[in-house]
């Protein structure tokens, strides 16, 4: 029963991941992006859970709970809290939405081409879905270089991190619990530090446009 719907579940989860990433490029509002990030975290957790059930490993299911807590709940909550606290400024990205979505399409194609070379011969379901992870990495990078606000940059970084996690889970069946715990804590720490940093920026310059950061000061 489960084996028959397994490929479809994998497809559903990875599709949700790609869709949320693309929507994040399209939407400019910071709050909308945070909600999308939360959905993406849940999708990632679901993906991990599906893989765990398929392989029958309790440890991977535990990891999926951890992913749900950190990426689906904790990180979006931290981000949203900070954003609510301040006056909302919408993003004015360096690329207009049409061009951005076109770039997303090109990047996705590129990642499929690359993956077909790298994973040639591997016919498993998860290997088929791996290019989505690569595409998410590239989309996260795209967000990093096109967004001006520190908060949006952070979201780009988190999408990139989700992409790496997706590739890891799909190609090697996940990482050990301890490693995942370490990585999650790392990401959480980075987000907290960056948010403190963004707060400092706001008190210093009145906004968080990172174009202001051009010179080194003592």
């Amino acid at each position: 029963m489960f084996t028959t719907i397994y490929p479809q579940l994998i497809g559903l989860c990875t599709g949700a991941l790609l869709l949320t990433s693309a929507l994040m490029v399209w939407r400019h509002s910071l709050l909308a992006s945070i909600r999308l990030l939360s959905v993406q975290g849940v999708a990632l957790a679901a993906l991990v859970a599906v893989i765990g059930v398929e392989e029958g490993e309790v440890e991977v299911i535990l990891v999926s709970v951890l992913v749900l807590l950190v990426k689906g709940v904790a990180l979006p909550w931290v981000l949203a809290r900070e954003t609510h606290a301040t006056t909302r400024t919408d993003e004015a990205p360096r690329l207009n939405p049409t061009a951005a979505l076109l770039t997303v399409a090109l990047l996705t194609i590129l990642s499929y081409v690359v993956a077909s070379r790298l994973l040639a011969g591997d016919t498993s379901v998860s290997a088929h879905a791996a290019p989505i992870g690569l595409a998410m990495v590239l989309i996260g990078f795209l967000l990093l270089i096109t967004r001006r606000q520190a908060g949006s940059q952070l979201i780009g970084f988190l999408v990139l991190d989700n992409g790496i996690a997706t590739v890891a889970f799909l190609t090697s069946g996940g990482v050990p619990l301890f490693l995942e715990l370490g990585i999650s804590l790392d990401v959480l720490l980075v987000v907290v530090i960056l948010y403190v940093f963004a707060g400092r920026m706001r008190t210093k310059f009145g906004n968080t446009e990172i174009d202001q950061l051009r010179k080194l000061h003592d």
């Binding site: 360096r94 990078f141 990093l144 270089i145």
Partner: peptide, 13 residues
């Protein structure tokens, strides 16, 4: 190397 973070990120991208 003009100090812009965006430019450095673009280089790595």
């Amino acid at each position: 190397q003009n100090g812009s973070i965006h430019r450095y990120l673009s280089y790595s991208f």
